[in-house]
Amino acid sequence: MDHQPTTSRTPWVVGITGASGTPYAAAVIRALLDGGEAVDLVVSRAARLTLLDETGQTFREAQWRTDVKAFIGRDAGDMVVWKENDFAAGPSSGSYPTGGMLVVPATTASVAGIAAGLSKDLIQRAADVTLKERRPLVLVLRETPLRRVTLRQMADLADEGATVLPASPAFYAGARDVQQLVDFVAGKALDAIGVPHTLYTRWTGELGAGRARTEALGA
């Protein structure tokens, strides 16, 4: 890993766990980088397996820049990658400046670990730091149906200031393909942290506006 963070960076930490939904992570990362934001990325071991299953892409530490480019469809840009078991990593400390963190997709296990403050890996530890430092934390949960214990954990995290954002795409924007549905969820995650984007058509109160825009774009 080539860790070259500087004091001038204030990155967004992105944690990818093993839940289904790695395309959501790709859309979030791509939009952050396209918007000129810095990214600190943590990919769990389970997420690497899911990534391979869902996209056919690998994530290898020795060539992560190549693998990230294949995953998100653009150069990694201002990105630092940390190992999931590196508890000396920057995001494990509150003195390391970040804008906040997104866990996308988030497993119920990661939600449980964050809610309980277990810090069993860097994703959970970085989320714990994000909460204690009162920075934005967005958890893009990808699971259905939900157990009562998970609902309670989600409520506890919301009480602490986290945004629990289930991966629930909307159809009112006139989506014609899966990527547009993915982008809607990614856009909602970016809305939660205040990062501008153009990932989806916003509701204006005009019925059919989203479909008209989609047709105008030739989709």
Rank of each mutant, 00 (worst) to 15 (best):
L157H: 02
N85I: 01
R176V: 13
F87T: 03
E160Q: 15
A88C: 05
A158S: 05
P105N: 06
R65N: 03
I114T: 12
V103K: 10
L146G: 03
G161V: 06
T108H: 03
L131Q: 03
Y200I: 04
K69H: 14
S95V: 12
I123G: 08
A109L: 08
Y172E: 02
R147A: 09
Y96G: 03
M101E: 11
A186S: 11
G117E: 10
R142T: 03
G94H: 11
A167M: 00
R74W: 08
G94P: 10
P169T: 08
L146H: 04
L122R: 11
T150R: 00
W82R: 05
M79R: 09
G117L: 11
L118M: 13
G194R: 09
A70S: 14
Q153E: 04
R134A: 14
M79Y: 10
G100Q: 06
M154K: 01
A127V: 09
L137K: 04
P97M: 01
T107H: 04
H197G: 11
V140F: 02
D177W: 01
D121C: 08
W64C: 04
R65I: 03
K188Y: 05
G77A: 14
V164G: 01
L157Q: 01
K83T: 10
A70R: 15
T130R: 11
G99S: 13
V129N: 07
V104M: 10
S168W: 00
V111D: 06
V195W: 12
A115K: 06
A109W: 01
